[in-house]
Nucleic acid binder design. Structure first.
Length: 575
DNA sequence: GCCGTTTTCGGCCCGACTGTTTTCAGTCG
């Protein structure tokens, strides 16, 4: 059973949480958290690095001790240290940390003084009004715990998909913006970094007077609960469960505040450390020389970066994944933008499970400013979509030729989304595949094969000369389906060697490849197709979500094939 | 536990809000 990066990261997070509750040195706890994050952010498979006997301490946040522990986990599947800690601290206490308002100190108190070991214990103690009797706790705290228990119902809180967050954040911003006191208003946080999911919404405001802004904020129609309200900071929870934080700062602090509230946290910490090296202090109000109260920068983000000798870094890559070093060395990527894309390379029509005809799809794409659209209906194995056999596909090819004659300055590419069967063969014979301009290959069945079998399946499929683009490579669906288990390192090496492209599927429920894998593909020289996998005309607009992901993966126009013309793409797909 | 163009020891990002306190610890982002 191969050990995944996320397994190792989870173990270290657990160690951190339990040590924290136990009252261990906070910096030691932080080390485990940072190691976990560092591993989570890693593009290559850490188990492979161990097999290759690489020096793990070269990774940021990983020293001798944690490197040993990683090796132990890879070799034995578990960490003895964690088993030991669990003997001292009940592991279910970690769930208590999910309740807003409960941190390690309070959880420790609850455990030591009331023998609370689980959410159930906590529920009972709250019901019997035992918690309010504890020193440092009170009636309000107890009530808050009760409320939180009810709200979460034992379920782990899920982050909200970006597209859904947009639906709620934008009207709220418009509502606030009606106030004449407001000068600037912007959504910061992971929303601005265009992360696929957001934990909450952070709104930053500059204004002439904060009082009416805060008042209006907490009176918003969709508010379920006011979590806090102050002069410069207020938090609410919307009825759908999404938390929104509002921060008000002065105009002269706008840049440093925006930087701070955009994050990521680890990016900011890196910047602050950099400032300390220069005898400066960065906070949300500006950049201050040691001991001075007058800021030397802060009005714009550029100013703040500049004063620590960095170029401005686009929000999407502020994840402490090497962007600060790149900025320092003038090596920041020139990130791709939606305007760079000339067309879309994956969609479906009424031939299979799409709802619009070939011509309707093509005209809609043209209206969006595209120069081409690849029609890639399913192959026969995908029976739920009534996938096409060779004969039906031949008929579609003929129809596309006819429609292409009618269209000016637009090309419909003849394609298919051919299924990769369990044995690694493609679902249609070569003699029909060769008639096409482009072939998108993907898996829809047997997603639960072992890593070894699944990897072999894809590697085998890639031997086919008509394997052009590997679509929605991991088959994950956000919050719904885990990625398939594969050795991505190995497959990407193969793809790179065979000039096979990989897809960033822009469907908001997929966004597959994700940001980390996109960056990994770029580093290996693999070209990417950003495609919508549209099943309706309207879906064609989703391309922007794929671009978000591509930007988060450091992709530049040159890394993405649909920045090229239709002619160039057809040429690239012929091998 | 990690890290190092002043360090192998002594630091480790920084501030707002809440509730329980009478000056602050805990939590959060």
């Amino acid at each position: 059973m191969p050990v995944h990066n996320s397994d190792i990261a989870d173990i270290f997070s657990e160690v951190a949480d339990l040590l924290d509750i136990e009252g261990a040195n906070e910096f030691r706890v932080r080390s485990y958290r940072e190691a976990a994050q560092s591993i989570e952010n890693l593009s290559s498979n850490i188990a492979d690095l161990v097999d290759e006997d690489k020096d793990l301490t070269e990774l940021h946040g990983i020293g001798e001790s944690i490197a040993d522990k990683i090796r132990e986990i890879v070799e034995t599947g578990k960490l003895e240290q964690l088993e030991e800690i669990k003997k001292r601290v009940p592991e279910d206490l970690i769930q208590l940390l999910n309740l807003s308002g409960l941190g390690p100190e309070r959880v420790k108190d609850l455990y030591q003084k009331l023998s609370i070991k689980s959410l159930d214990d906590l529920k009972k103690a709250a019901k019997n009004e035992k918690i309010r009797e504890l020193e440092g706790f009170g009636e309000k705290t107890e009530n808050k715990i009760k409320k939180e228990l009810e709200r979460l119902g034992g379920e782990e809180e899920k982050r909200t998909k970006l597209i859904r967050a947009e639906e709620y954040a934008e009207p709220l911003v418009s509502y606030l913006d009606e106030l004449e006191e407001i000068k600037k208003i912007i959504i910061a946080g992971s929303y601005r970094r265009r992360k696929e999911t957001v934990g909450d919404i952070d709104i930053l405001v500059t204004c002439s007077d904060s009082e009416p802004v805060m008042d209006r904020f907490v009176k918003y129609d969709d508010v379920e609960e006011v979590i806090s309200k102050g002069d410069t900071k207020s938090s609410i929870r919307l009825k759908i469960g999404l938390q929104v934080d509002l921060r008000v700062v002065k105009e002269k602090s706008y840049g440093s505040a925006l930087l701070y509230f955009t994050g990521s946290k680890s990016h900011n910490i890196k910047l602050r450390e950099r400032a300390i090296d220069r005898d400066l202090k960065i906070n949300e109000y500006g950049v201050f020389p040691e001991g001075k109260e007058k800021p030397v920068a802060g009005k714009t983000e550029e100013e703040v970066y500049d004063i620590v000798d960095l170029e401005w870094i686009p929000p999407e890559i502020r994840e402490n994944r090497g962007e600060i070093e790149a900025s320092e060395n003038g090596k920041l990527p020139k990130l791709i933008s939606l305007d760079d894309l000339k067309g879309d390379l994956h969609c479906h029509t009424t031939y299979t499970d799409g709802v619009d005809s070939i011509e309707e799809m093509a005209r809609a794409a043209k209206d969006l400013g595209h120069k081409y659209l690849a029609i890639t209906d399913h192959s026969k194995r995908v029976t739920v979509a009534e996938g096409l056999d060779a004969k039906e596909l031949a008929k579609q090819i003929e129809e596309i030729d006819k429609i292409n004659e009618k269209l000016n300055d637009f090309t419909i590419l003849k394609g298919v989304e051919v299924d990769i069967l369990e044995d690694g063969s493609l679902d249609l014979p070569d003699d029909i595949l060769k008639e096409l301009d482009i072939r998108v290959c993907s898996i829809h069945y047997k997603l639960d094969l072992s890593s070894e079998k699944q990897t072999r399946r894809i590697l085998k499929a890639m031997e086919n000369q008509y394997f052009n683009i590997w679509a929605h490579p991991t088959d994950r669906e956000i919050h719904k389906r885990d990625p398939i288990d594969i050795n991505m390192d190995k497959i990407m090496s193969e793809a790179a060697g065979r000039n096979i492209c990989m897809e960033i599927n822009s469907s908001p429920r997929r966004l597959d490849l994700n940001d980390i894998h996109s960056k990994m593909a770029k580093e290996r020289g693999i070209k990417i197709a950003i495609s919508t996998d549209s099943h309706t005309k309207d879906n064609l607009k989703n391309l922007k979500y794929g671009v978000n992901q591509a930007r988060r993966g450091w992709l530049e126009a040159d890394d993405v094939i649909n920045t090229k013309s239709a002619g160039e793409i057809i040429k690239m797909m012929k091998k």
